[in-house]
Amino acid sequence: MALLEFAQGLGVTLRNMFRPPTTIKYPEQRRVLPERERGRHVLHRYENGLERCIGCYLCAGACPADCIYIEAAENTPENRVSAGERYARVYEIDMLRCIFCGFCEEACPTGAITLEPILDISDYSRGPMIYTKDMLLEPPRNLDDLAAEASHR
């Protein structure tokens, strides 16, 4: 009787030996994540290149982990950063504190901040884990890319 159970157990082992592995060779290989995965934050721009963020602090106010630090400033005609009067001069997120709840995204009145399917948030020390605005902000898209995107649709 014991032998039969022994064989059954080995059967499970043998069956799984010939299955393809569930792990992947990260970071060479990347898993396809769901589109709405709440990973790292990205600060977005409008299509004309201006930042969406207006430095209103609502994300910081909503954040249960208190991981967002902002300093706002006023746009000038010479230095126009966002669409309105106000923009975020400093925007920092402490990724070690963030719990990826997505409240910041919900609080944002302009859709400036979203959690994107980006998972590789790691480093060897704490300092670099405070993401600054230039790390979070998406690069300005140039107009050729926009035209190409439009023709694909």
């Binding site: 207006i54 209103c56 609502l58 106000r86």
Partner: peptide, 9 residues
Amino acid sequence: LDCPICDRG
């Protein structure tokens, strides 16, 4: 209604 950027908000 620009409360998000209004200093009084």
